[in-house]
């Protein structure tokens, strides 16, 4: 059935959506449009004249080894975080699904980490993973150089991935649990009658039926890791050591606001935006449509 409101005055519907359109315009289309414009010009750091330079900003980025290194660490961070967050959340949800009572309370409790601001998480994890305090100082005393994220790039990246996935696990868990609970109970019972043990049932019945949730979360997590990781990086590593955690969003910030290269930063943000648009497109085009069973 088609539901459609009809308005007699042709202006009224436009007036009704105007506030929303204004907000979207002011906070999204306008800045995005400016970013596009800046990406094709050279901006003066202190304002004033601007010069049209065409694709020059992009060419400079594409020949920069620093940029490609940043893309590489972004990929490592995004895939590492997403994989860890999805696997752990899936396991938690699978085991909790078997004995769930009062799942509502749990859901609220478990979504909290997602509501914690990234800098706060960054601060906490910085203390947790500090080489000179707690567990790691003991381990370092036993075997010097065992752990030091302020000196070792790999350690810094691992630390970031842990912190990033800690936040995403909460989010993923809620989706996986909801997905599991929407699988009709007789399906797992039928599998039990057919001789499958709990682990086998997870593998053959529950996980395959979670495929739509799974693909949705892959896309959301990747997008989130590419765009929302600024707070963590800024607090925990500042992009270091030696650019080992200089992921794309952080590089945009440091090139633009520290290096005062507004145009280069704008061009980078346009590329990142296109990446996110592409991921969203995949989400809508392929995932949402193909994952239907009934």
């Amino acid at each position: 059935m088609e539901r459609r409101a009809t308005f007699r005055a042709p202006l009224l519907p436009w007036l009704l959506v105007l506030p929303q359109l204004l907000i979207v315009f002011v906070f999204f289309y306008w800045p995005s449009g400016e970013a596009f414009r800046w990406a094709f010009t050279l901006e003066q750091p202190w304002g004033g004249g601007r010069e049209w330079v065409g694709w020059q900003n992009f060419l400079e980025i594409f020949v920069s080894t620093h940029y490609w290194a940043s893309v590489r660490v972004s990929m490592i961070y995004a895939f590492g975080t997403s994989a860890l967050a999805i696997v752990i959340a899936l396991l938690l949800a699978l085991f909790i699904d078997r004995e769930v009572r009062g799942s509502r309370g749990w859901r609220v409790a478990l979504i909290w980490p997602y509501a914690v601001a990234a800098p706060a998480i960054g601060m906490i994890f910085r203390f947790v993973f500090d080489a000179r305090a707690g567990v790691f100082s003991l381990l370092n005393a036993v075997s010097p150089g065992f752990w030091d994220p302020s000196m070792n790039g790999t350690h810094a990246m691992v630390m970031l991935i842990f912190a990033g996935s800690w936040q995403l696990i909460a989010y993923n868990f809620v989706f996986f649990l909801a997905g599991l609970q929407s699988i009709p109970r007789p399906l797992t019972e039928a599998a039990a009658m057919d001789g499958a043990g709990p682990l086998r049932r997870m593998r053959d019945i529950q996980v395959p039926l979670l495929a739509p949730t799974f693909f949705f979360l892959v896309v959301i997590n990747l997008t989130d890791s590419f765009t929302n990781s600024f707070g963590l990086v800024d607090i925990m590593t500042g992009g270091g050591p030696a650019r080992a955690t200089d992921i794309m969003v952080y590089k945009i910030y440091s090139d633009g606001f520290k290096g005062l290269d507004y145009s280069g930063a704008a061009a980078q943000s346009v590329i990142l935006m296109l990446l996110v648009v592409a991921l969203t497109f995949i989400q809508f085009r392929f995932v949402e449509r193909k994952m239907r069973y009934r």
Binding site: P186, L187, E189, A190, A191, A192, M193, G195, G197, Y293
Partner: peptide
Amino acid sequence: REPKDRGCAMVFQNYALYPH
């Protein structure tokens, strides 16, 4: 005993066929 060790097979009300 586990369901699988009881020598029973079951047909469910909504058939519970594996949709995938």
